[in-house]
């Protein structure tokens, strides 16, 4: 009996040696396939953005870029509807503003959790955990009505201010700060006569830099990509954000301008792709980090 099982084990072991190489090759092939699948739609978009509409009509499939990129962009802007620069500017203001507020106030709230001992501290933390999963998108009608009341529709500030309360970011910052901040530093700063706000701004924020960088990237991208809230809140095309500009490409005047539509789509994600390729290491690490802590 025991002999038998031993024999089986060795046979299995030998098979694994051979199977290991085959298995590895299959894994590499599949991973490469998935990687290609990730870029292929964007590559198709980029190539077609450089091709003229007649070229696309002849054959929509091509992997080699052509030379009509600027013609396409010219046609796009001649229609006076899709304005990537306006969208870019508005999105940047919203994303940057929202990110700064979210990062600063989340750090502040997390700092209050870690350093001070106050009666409601634990209760407040449970509260943050509880509201983390609330779907904000579903209360947008009430939010819109509130904006009407204060005459703040069509105002980008209403896309920025709500990010002061970002429960999941507070949670992340707290988890980061707890082991990273030696309380002695705070004590000695106090002895030196530093005030609490000064300690937070000048001593604690620099310590939190890595966490802030990670969270800032995700906050920025999330805000930049948000479609639902601005779509409900903003009606003036001057205040359109980038995702809303994208939706304008659905308009009838662009219907037959295939090349231009691809060019417009390319313009909207070019900044994102560049930023992603520059920061990909940190972004992927950030995704992993967020999961472990969350």
């Amino acid at each position: 009996m025991s002999n038998n099982s031993n024999l089986q084990l060795t046979v299995e072991g030998r098979e694994k040696g051979k199977g290991g190489v085959v298995q590895k090759v299959i894994i590499y092939i599949l991973c490469t396939f998935l990687s290609i699948l990730s870029i292929l739609p964007f590559w198709m978009m980029f190539v077609n953005a450089t091709r003229s509409t007649p070229q696309i009509q002849q054959s929509a499939v091509s992997f080699i870029p052509s030379t009509h990129m600027f013609d396409n962009i010219k046609i796009l802007s001649s229609k006076n509807m899709f304005k990537p620069m306006v969208g870019f500017f508005n999105s940047f203001i919203v994303a940057a503003g929202a990110t700064c507020l979210a990062v600063y106030f989340s750090s502040l709230t997390a700092y209050a959790q870690v350093v001070y001992e106050w009666k409601l501290r634990n209760a407040f933390f449970s509260f943050i955990m509880a509201i983390m999963m609330l779907p904000g998108q579903l209360t947008l009608i009430g939010f819109l009505q509130m904006c009407y009341k204060f005459h703040l529709t069509n105002n980008l500030i209403m896309l920025i201010l709500p990010s002061i309360a970002a429960p999941s970011m507070v949670f992340f910052m707290r988890q980061y700060l707890q082991p990273a901040l030696p309380v002695e530093i705070v004590h000695s700063a106090r002895i030196d006569g530093a005030r609490e706000f000064y300690i937070f701004n000048k001593i604690v924020l620099p310590i939190m830099k890595p966490a802030i960088a990670t969270q800032a990237i995700f906050s920025f991208v999330g805000s930049w990509n948000n479609l639902f809230t601005p779509m409900v809140l903003i009606s003036s095309t001057k205040k359109y954000t980038m995702p809303m500009m994208v939706s304008l490409l659905r308009a009838d005047i662009y219907k037959t301008e295939y090349g231009s539509i691809y060019a417009g789509l390319t313009l909207t994600i070019l900044p994102l792709i560049v930023v992603y390729l520059l920061l990909s290491k940190y972004i992927v690490a950030g995704v992993a980090l967020g999961s472990v802590k969350g």
Partner: peptide
Amino acid sequence: YKVMFYLPNIITQAT
């Protein structure tokens, strides 16, 4: 591979 797999997630869903 991770960078490649994650790429579609960061691109604007509208686009």
